[in-house]
Design a protein around this nucleic acid. Structure first.
Lengths: 329, 329
DNA sequence: GGGCTACATCGGAGATGTTCGACATGGGTA
DNA sequence: TACCCATGTCGAACATCTCCGATGTAGCCC
């Protein structure tokens, strides 16, 4: 690969002149010279070496994303929003999956530091997250967080509590009284908030919280299926189910069907997130819409502002929206 | 952030010695000195700067992935396989979405060059791909391709043709004679191969290919839905449908349901890929399984071998497997 | 015991590719 | 002649690795 001095040699000018042409720093360069340089660049197919540039400028135009799992459509959609925005602003993206393992989170944070990433977008917490995330502090104000976290970074959040409350309210409005919940895993703030929203709605309606109606899954369809079978075989048997995400709701519906229960008649089910395929189910899945893509966009915008150094809104809260479809009645 | 000379200063040794300790190059360093250096490193929380290292060594331990769209679960699963393997070998991953736009493909290739990525995994072709991909040649043998492509790189391929043929064979075996096809978009070799497999199966059974039974979608559920409505309203009306991926199959099933058709009775539907939620549908989706995760793993392994410089298998073909579930009978 | 050799250990300096401020040059104008 | 503006050149700096040479010491032979 040719470098800047190859270009300088070929164009018969100095290295600095080439640099000026490439960076269009100031137009203090003779048009004829500029043309010579551009011709040499074309001929050698020269591109400036980003490593050298980054080393000198202390800016790499690269950001890191740390999430639990890209094969989870929830995160895939957020990442897509981040990437489109990053790309538009000239940033490249490094992606890391943690599976919520503390060891990996820490490792990736250090890796991103070594690679001089300009900033990091982090999502998907773990239990003892404070000590873990404080490592991120070393990146000095270069972090945006998606979701509620133990450390105070600029954040994009979702009103998970409100969404869950609204969903349960909807079920109560339909006359359901035995409302079960397939919650997310412990340690996930998203899971906690949705569960809290569920409890709040019960409380607001003077209904008792019954732990026998609650199970904790892992976000996967399999876990939703398994736990729904448990709940539906138990006593009391719920007549409605709030699932902490669509994947588990999908699993739950399958379980109900296998047990001969009609949906929504015998069992109403609400999911969460509004993944693309939810509306294609039979019955179409009632769900709490979370604008994943927009969340990604907002997170990246916030990071760009942060890197820009000016003032900006340190917190962006997204509201959810209940989408009533066929799985509840 | 502290650098190597800070460490050298603190440990009272030369930069070279610190480097030797950090890289454990050879044990030609006094244990006492090593301990001093390690202590300084711990104290300053020093990490070598990957930019400087990469610049010098001409190796960044970073690879690029260029795919159409990470929010497509098919690619998300492949990417997950790539990343797990890359991570295990110490490689970081930069991700780029092209939406199959030539302009973006080219831009990302150049970007990866600028950033000195050690290698690239490419998937998701476009029409005039030869000229586009020949740019990749400049990366000089540092590319692994997923799927059939116009340029000869080491490749991981899927027997899409065989899979489609087997699926149609299955439908014919069930007594279906009017078999429609919702194919993928033009320009995608995956789409072409699956369509060819469909035609081959018809030919092998002495059945005529009827273009009225074929439509081309965009892989999305929406397109599957829309095109299925077209096909099912047309004449002749198909009694079975091969869809080029699960997403479109899901859309097609919804369309059929809305038209009052029973599945699989009135219409048998086969998808392709085996996305995780397919088995949770009602009826569970018969599909051609493509081992996406393993494909990602194989592609990354191949790239690692390629970067290693030794000999290795330049082509890896994955067979598909028909998963007969409830959507066909 | 002295001198030489060999080896273990460590330091110096160059090289990687880039940007940019400081400085040089050259021609034109007052 | 002096000065100024438009261009172009030079060299430092970024952080790292590695070759090569320097230093010191121990062992060995005479």
């Amino acid at each position: 690969m040719s470098n800047i001095s190859d270009v300088a040699l070929k164009a018969n000018v100095s290295i600095a002149t080439v640099s000026r042409v490439v960076n269009e720093s100031d137009h203090k360069v003779n048009p004829a010279t500029r043309e010579k340089v551009l011709a040499a660049i074309r001929e050698l197919d020269y591109r400036p070496n980003a490593l050298a540039k980054g080393l000198l400028m202390k800016k790499t135009m690269t950001i890191g994303i740390i999430i639990p799992d890209i094969s989870n459509p929830y995160y895939a959609e957020i990442v897509r929003g981040i990437q489109d925005t990053a790309d538009g602003a000239g940033y490249a993206v490094m992606l890391h999956n943690t599976d919520r393992k503390q060891e990996r989170i820490i490792r990736y944070i250090y890796l991103l530091r070594e690679k001089s990433a300009d900033g990091v977008i982090f999502s998907g917490g773990i239990i003892n997250e404070y000590e873990t995330l404080s490592i991120l502090k070393e990146l000095k104000e270069r972090v945006v967080v998606v979701g509620r976290h133990a450390v105070d970074f600029p954040a994009v959040m979702v009103d998970n509590m409100g969404g869950a409350t609204q969903a349960v309210q909807h079920l109560i409005g339909l006359g359901r009284r035995l409302i079960g919940c397939i919650a997310g895993p412990e340690g996930s703030t998203t899971a906690e908030d949705r569960l809290t929203g569920y409890r709040n709605a019960l409380a607001q309606n003077g209904m008792a919280f019954d732990p026998r109606l609650v199970r904790r899954g892992t976000w996967s369809p399999e876990s939703g299926y398994r736990l729904a079978r448990e709940l539906l075989a138990g006593d009391p048997r719920p007549t409605a189910l709030l699932c902490a995400n669509d994947q588990m709701a999908i699993g739950a519906i399958k379980a109900a069907r296998e047990l001969g229960l009609r949906i929504p008649g015998d069992l109403s089910v609400v999911g969460f997130d509004n993944v693309p395929t939810g509306s294609y189910f039979d019955p179409p899945l009632t769900t709490v819409e979370v604008p994943m893509y927009d969340i990604g966009v907002a997170a990246m915008r916030m990071l760009i502002d942060l890197l820009g150094g000016g003032m900006f809104e340190k917190l962006r809260l997204f509201n959810t929206k209940l989408l009533v479809r066929g799985s509840t009645a």
